[in-house]
């Protein structure tokens, strides 16, 4: 089999990424040829959450040194396709994929599936049912539950009326699902008035800047639906620099440990947070290991569900301990 130029470049990239991190045995040695080999393809760490994905992937992989791992973070779909092609060329039996984008990754996933590669698809689904297991976070529930929390709290403490700022993330389906679901809840509650809506690109600095502008525009804001903990921190800084931290509270999202800590300590700016655990990549890796490790793939697959949805959970001071991971990067 001949490697195309693209594949061999990708192979270089993939080994460059995985080798120093895991010090795996040279591919040619006799023992490694019998090893189960699994590829893990994830988006590059462009934000706190994706850095968390990388950290959790490494945690899960480190539990199984007997498996030959290939880990490749990709900044865009093109790189990710090349990574997966390279993994297939290396003959991996399993793939765990958190897609940078759904549509462009579907054909290569289909190609892998046709070769009999076991595929666990995490978080962002392929357009065709080519994954053996699809494990996703529920972004609509994320939007609904977070908005409902704001409505409930406003009904309890704010007399049912509140001026809310909505901070959106990077334009993509994840963001659209969250924002649309939240908007439906807000719309059903006439006491909630959306006084500003802007994109903070899931980025602390950007969120800080748009929040500064929205603060000038709106002399009264009660709540920020920040939809992400990085953005929550940016919004918080803008609010504090404007001296309005006494009158505004924030609901972030994803469960960054710093925010979880603030919730735990009853910080008035952070009455709650909502999970969207980056550890779901570790769940996916664990599933792939469980199916492939002992050579009983067919048997195990016969009872494994094909679609699992991880519900998001509200983090409150009462349960925050459970969601605080001191050693995690996120």
């Amino acid at each position: 089999m001949t490697l195309t130029r693209r594949q061999s470049l990708g192979l270089l990239a993939a080994t460059a990424v995985s080798a120093p991190a895991f010090g795996q045995a040279p591919a040619g040695s006799a023992s490694s040829r019998k090893k189960v080999s699994i590829g893990v393809s994830i988006p590059a760490a462009d934000h706190g959450w994706t850095a968390g994905v990388l950290w959790w992937a490494k945690q899960a992989m480190a539990l199984y040194p007997e498996i030959e791992w290939t880990l490749a973070p990709a900044a865009n779909p093109e790189k990710q396709i090349a990574d997966i092609e390279t993994m297939l060329a290396k003959g991996v039996q399993g793939l765990v994929i958190l897609a940078t984008e759904s549509a462009p990754l579907t054909p290569v996933a289909k190609q892998a599936s046709e070769r009999g590669t076991f595929i666990v698809n995490v978080d962002r689904g392929f357009l065709e049912p080519v994954a053996d297991i699809f494990l996703e976070g529920d972004n609509k529930s994320f939007g609904r539950k977070s908005a409902q929390f704001i409505v409930d709290r406003v009904n309890k403490t704010g007399g049912g009326k509140a001026k809310v700022v909505v901070l959106e993330g990077i334009p993509c389906t994840v963001n659209t699902d969250r924002v649309t679901a939240a908007a439906e809840v807000f719309k059903a509650n006439p006491g909630i008035e959306i006084v500003g809506q802007a994109s903070g690109m899931w980025n602390r600095q950007k969120a800080l800047e748009v929040m500064e502008t929205l603060l000038v525009k709106n002399p009264k804001i009660d709540v920020v639906w920040a939809s992400d903990d990085d953005m929550a921190l940016g919004a918080e800084q803008a609010i504090k620099e404007a001296g309005r931290e006494k009158s505004i509270w924030i609901l972030g999202g994803a469960g960054m440990k710093d925010i979880v800590k603030r919730v735990k300590e009853n910080d008035p700016m952070y009455p709650a947070d909502i999970t969207y655990p980056p550890s779901m990549i570790a769940t996916g890796i664990q599933l792939a290991v469980g199916v492939l490790r002992d050579g009983n793939r067919a048997k195990i697959q016969s009872f494994m569900p094909r679609h699992m949805m991880i519900d998001v959970e509200l983090i409150t001071p009462a349960n925050a301990d459970k969601y605080y991971f001191a050693e995690s990067v996120y």
């Binding site: 590059a44 760490a45 462009d46 934000h47 706190g48 994706t50 850095a51 980025n203 602390r204 600095q205 800080l208 990085d230 800084q237």
Partner: peptide, 14 residues
């Protein structure tokens, strides 16, 4: 300047 303002560096974003 940006580092001072945020008192941190986001390696992927700054």
């Amino acid at each position: 300047m940006q580092t001072a303002r945020m008192a941190s560096v986001s390696s992927s974003q700054l």
